[in-house]
Amino acid sequence: AYQIDSEHGLSNDPIGADRYRLDIDLGKITFVHHHLMSMEYVLAMRMKQMYECYTVRRQQLIVQQLSEKIKALKSAESNCRTLYEQNKYADSPEPKEFYDRLVNYQNELRQARNQRCNEMKLDRDLLKHLLDVWKEIKDIRRANGYTTTSVKLIIKQISGKKTKHYEQIQQQIEEEIEDEITLADEQYQREKEAHTKIVRNRKLQETRKKEAKKRLDKKRAAALTSDNIDGDYDQNDITIINEEDIYVPEKPEPRKRDEIRTTILTKYQSAIRPPDSQQTLNENDFQSDFPATKSKLKPIDNFDYC
């Protein structure tokens, strides 16, 4: 916007509405969707948006950052476990502090691993949807015999040998399985000790009730021949007999190692691709130049696409 020269403006304009002019230059308008778009154009725009999202996620390196976070948490958890084992029986508040810190590290480690698995699923699903849309575009082009867009996606196939990245993921999955087995065993030992303590308290309670009942029966039998009755003593025994029975839960069972392994492998099944079928797209593998009119229609024989 700029002010008009006073010689060309209207001097009698009281509010100066004609003293300014706004020039807008429209270079290009890109429609995300329009009812006159062809199916190929709609799919091409959808693929372009997905590819932009795919590129952003590759640049953010979310999975790699989570892997580094997991490595750091694993190291911290190992050091904290060592300190806890060394001071477990110390007569100080340190063992509890070390144990609480250890539990926090274990929870954060599990959350980070689950988050990484979810991010890997998102990456794989996004790549799958991207390839599915590209396949639909190629099918439409073959059916029509011409193209209405110049969108092109280059797919690169990795060789059949296991890649270093795939081997690292497999190693990290095995570490997660071993950690979960260790945590499951520790949890089982804690539950077993707690259950044993409850059973012992229940037996002691039953013994107290039997003794109180014997004393009460003896008192009542003596009351038939004597008027000297200790009412407080009777009340204490009655209170013991009327105590609510301590609930004993079912005996805990250890988790099976094969079950833990199957659960974790199933979680990663839809998150990682086998090395023999892995496909990758680079930043320069997507090319598009959407035409604005049908005058730019290209015969399919003259269009090179993968």
Rank of each mutant, 00 (worst) to 15 (best):
Y105K: 03
I24W: 09
I15H: 14
L109Q: 00
E211A: 12
P252L: 08
S288N: 12
E253P: 00
D304G: 07
T280K: 10
N302G: 15
Q59F: 09
S11G: 15
I24E: 04
E206G: 07
I240H: 02
L281A: 03
E176F: 02
L183Q: 08
L109M: 08
T182S: 12
E191C: 08
L10A: 08
Q106W: 05
I229E: 08
S150K: 14
A90V: 13
Q3E: 11
K156C: 08
R110W: 10
R190C: 12
A1K: 09
E40H: 02
L83F: 12
A184G: 06
S150E: 07
E167R: 07
S277Q: 11
R215W: 03
V42S: 10
S270Q: 10
Y20L: 14
L127D: 00
I4K: 12
A1S: 11
P249N: 03
V63L: 06
M47N: 02
D91P: 00
S67W: 00
N282V: 09
D289S: 12
L281M: 07
K267L: 14
E7C: 06
L66P: 02
H35K: 14
N144W: 08
K48E: 05
L297S: 09
D23C: 14
T55L: 15
Q172C: 05
I29G: 06
K192T: 09
N87E: 06
S67C: 11
D237K: 05
I169W: 01
I238S: 10
I246R: 02
Y89V: 11
E136G: 00
E174F: 04
Q172A: 06
N282G: 14
L281K: 03
D258P: 06
N284I: 09
I29F: 13
D217W: 06
Q60V: 13
K162R: 07
L66D: 01
Y54L: 11
K210F: 13
R200A: 10
D301C: 09
R215T: 02
Q106Y: 03
H35P: 11
I264L: 10
K192E: 03
A184W: 04
D125M: 13
K135T: 11
I4M: 13
S288L: 15
K128G: 04
Q60F: 10
I169V: 13
L127V: 04
D18R: 12
R215G: 03
N228W: 12
I177Q: 02
S277R: 14
A222V: 05
D132E: 08
R255E: 06
W134R: 06
E259P: 03
N144A: 13
K298S: 07
Q86Y: 06
R113L: 04
K71R: 13
T239Q: 15
A212N: 02
E283A: 14
R58G: 14
R220C: 07
F98G: 02
D13H: 05
Q187D: 11
E136V: 01
I238A: 14
F98E: 00
K197W: 07
T163G: 00
A223V: 08
Y188R: 03
L153R: 03
K213A: 12
S226K: 04
D301K: 15
N118F: 10
I173L: 00
K197E: 10
Q187H: 12
T30Y: 12
N284R: 10
M37Y: 05
D217P: 04
D185H: 11
R202T: 01
R124P: 01
L153K: 00
Y89A: 13
R208C: 03
I169E: 01
